[in-house]
Design a protein around this nucleic acid. Sequence first.
DNA 1: CTGAAAGCGCTTACAG
DNA 2: CTGAAAGCGCTTACAG
Lengths: 345, 345
Amino acid sequence: MKSQTAPSLADVARRAGVSLSTASRALNDAYGVSAATRARVLDSAAALDFVVSPDARRLAIGTTGRVAVVVPHIERWFFGQMVSGIERVLSEADFDILLYHVDDAEDRREFLARLPARRKVDAVVVVAFPVGEAERERLELIGAKIVAAGGQSAAYPYVCIDDFQAGRLALDHLTSLGHRRIAMIAGSDPDQPGWPAIPGRSRAYESALGALGVDVDPALVRDVDWNPVNAAKAMADILDAAGEPPTAVYAHGDELAFGVLHTLRHRGYRVPEDISVVGIDNHPLSELLDLTTVAQDVGGQGAAAARLVLQALGREQDEPGADPGAGVVAPVHLIERASTAPPRT
Amino acid sequence: MKSQTAPSLADVARRAGVSLSTASRALNDAYGVSAATRARVLDSAAALDFVVSPDARRLAIGTTGRVAVVVPHIERWFFGQMVSGIERVLSEADFDILLYHVDDAEDRREFLARLPARRKVDAVVVVAFPVGEAERERLELIGAKIVAAGGQSAAYPYVCIDDFQAGRLALDHLTSLGHRRIAMIAGSDPDQPGWPAIPGRSRAYESALGALGVDVDPALVRDVDWNPVNAAKAMADILDAAGEPPTAVYAHGDELAFGVLHTLRHRGYRVPEDISVVGIDNHPLSELLDLTTVAQDVGGQGAAAARLVLQALGREQDEPGADPGAGVVAPVHLIERASTAPPRT
DNA sequence: CTGAAAGCGCTTACAG
DNA sequence: CTGAAAGCGCTTACAG
């Protein structure tokens, strides 16, 4: 009945001829065990191929050694990068990462409501979505730390970029080139259709046009669910609806821009001669498509978020000047490639 | 000192006025507890916001409720899809997934060597890399099941596609169009430079040409580490090296094909008029780039792998006719788009 | 430096 | 149907 079972501490102790306590100490502390004894225990452990049962240790210790990473769309580039960055530093700090995928707002709420009581993790990092006040309190009540990646919060540490700034970088590039008639393909939150998923990037649009005294023309704006194919359709839509085509297109993300490029090419518009296109992200394929974009280091942000976790867990010496609990905003910068140029007059 | 602590089963039992055993049973079994008692316990648990400590439960139960998913490049599309598929079905079966990222062969070996003794998981699914015989045995010794996704093995269950077939699908399409001078951009394993990461896709090339009595021209073949940018360079290389350019290019993956398309465009070749291009994968961006490709459902393969895990763990009624321990090979199919056409004569 | 004992939070035969 | 008790595999004061 009992399936194969790994050697236990008791086995190690017996083989080394010491007590459980001593074996445990030899394996953990450095103190309180004579060198000779420790050596015997270590040998014994090695011979038996022993490794502590994490569950038992955790039970006794009261800590889990795990952190939950909760992401909406693990199959998308941005999230993959983020998880990759988080995993890298957390695993190095010897934490295991528990991956959870949550789809919509309902999913997220339910997940967060369940997690606290589960005590499965020491911390949770939520990627690109907010945590309600109530959930946050429950998490903190059980001692679980929480940090956000790809979004900010006043209530817990976070790392993100300044989306408004990123947007302005893209738009200022366009306007300084002389563009005035600029279309926008906005990424929209499927939970709240019609609302921008990243408000800052939309505000940048209004603000940039506003600064020029140009009114926003609704015929030039479309919301898209981040699916490139839908972005392609949206662009076609704009071309069909707007009397005069825009001279430039601002996409909230490179993946949306890819769709735009596709439609433009199919409709016979040359980029950038006829229409300029700019995105945000610096997706790995953007270089190949000569897309001008505002770059961000997503993997680096994941790593930074992981460091915030370690900090919150007291596992890292606070860097002097680092205000724990505060957020870090990662830098962004414009990368000019061949998809943007001055408008033809 | 003692940080906030969640309510324990003992609290629930006390509040309900029953013993620990009864509380436990009420929460788990359906049997052996009177309806009234169960109700009291349930109420009590609800009132206290109680949820069992997974670690304690596991310790007592002897099972972890977790499965490890080990991937080489979590930030790449293929792996993201795979993990996504795995997570979907495993989390529904109430398993937690522990994500591990391993880079190179050394990493993998070390990881697998450590895992067995750790007893952190009930099973491990390795994505797109092989597990040595020794490691496999150790894993099985401690009762951890193992299944492969994106690669096959004689020693444990797996799900993959038939890479040779996929390659032939792509190549037969090309040759039936009339192409004879076909270049190949092969994805290569960084651990074994010069070797194809996916041998079947290379064999398909040799086989398809062989069937036509055409010799493989080394000047038309390049190995690339799956980086699209390097694929672009490799294509440039071929164009520079080969006297006469190929009339078609076969890429081991769509991401490589993207690089090819880039170079072709920059060099002034029209696709497909001057040169045809075909890939494998049906990457989400392929549609936008009008790339002809051989499609595979990666997420579906992940889901299938997860089902194999459940099966191995005895958590799923064996479907009649399903041979546990065997592999499943997922179907592939050609998607013709605008990147392929007959060669100009 | 080392050991006996209690405890971490559950589950599960074993007896009522 | 219900409870007392042992056990899961470790850790950690408490005494030597």
